[in-house]
Amino acid sequence: MPEAREFWRWKEYNWKTPDFDWKDATLITAGVDVGSVSSQAVIMCDGKLYAFSNMRTGSDSPNSALNAMKWALEGTGMTLTDIHCKVGTGYGRINVPFSDRAITEIACHARGANYMFGPTLRTIMDMGGQDCKAIRCDENGKVVSFLMNDKCAAGTGRGMEAFAELLGVSIEEVGELSLQVEEEPPPVSNTCVVFAKTEAAGLLRSGWSREKVLAAYCSAMAHRVASLLNRIGMKEDFAITGGIAKNVGVVSRLEKELGVKALKTNYDMQIAGALGASIFAKDLAEKAIRNK
């Protein structure tokens, strides 16, 4: 295999709104979500999304948080000191050196998803790199209940990366390709992420096409989170967040299994946690001003 390309590696990026200038804002807040696989930083001006970044988490959480923040600030002329309040969230939230407060990712996700999808949202499925969370929330984005798969990483984004790498399919194309099968294969047995490569290799050896292998993995993943959603009790409206929300192969199979369509949004589905954190930062800053 002489190919040097890394198929699992998704593109890191940042974004800035063309609609307004941060210098006109009175309150600037930020949220940083340091996940197990990816990290995002979001900057908001007076409660409106201004800029964000999405990067891979390195082995060093404090650095990952700082890098994500720096990249979101890039090209804006803004510096860290211009931001009135910063909130850290995600698995590495206690290691965000510049944050004023750490808030759990469950609360932040619900809050961020409420902003992205609107007040009718009641159930969120967050599908991340290493774990999956089903969250029920109210019209204000407050968490009502949640279920998390934190015992076993099988069927998560990390496994998808391993499959993409072995099959030589870029991670962004996995979803589309997985739909190019004539007949839906049975889901793969959902063994440990550590064995994902062995499992995919075994299926290829037994004569399965790449598309069929990907279809089987996508449907296994959908099946796994569907059971999580059934346990928490599905209530519409429903939305999916996290990196897997961008994988049409998993999303369409999950919608089919649940018999429910997921809400669409123009926001980036990976920033829900960081977005929620920056909304919490806004609450905190406003409270501090009121108490002065």
Binding site: S36, S59, Y91, Q130, D150, K151, C152, A153, T156, R158, C192, V193, V194
Partner: peptide, 11 residues
């Protein structure tokens, strides 16, 4: 329990 999570725990 999980090898993937244990790696983070070790870190």
């Amino acid at each position: 329990q999980c090898a993937v999570f244990a790696e983070s725990e070790v870190v």
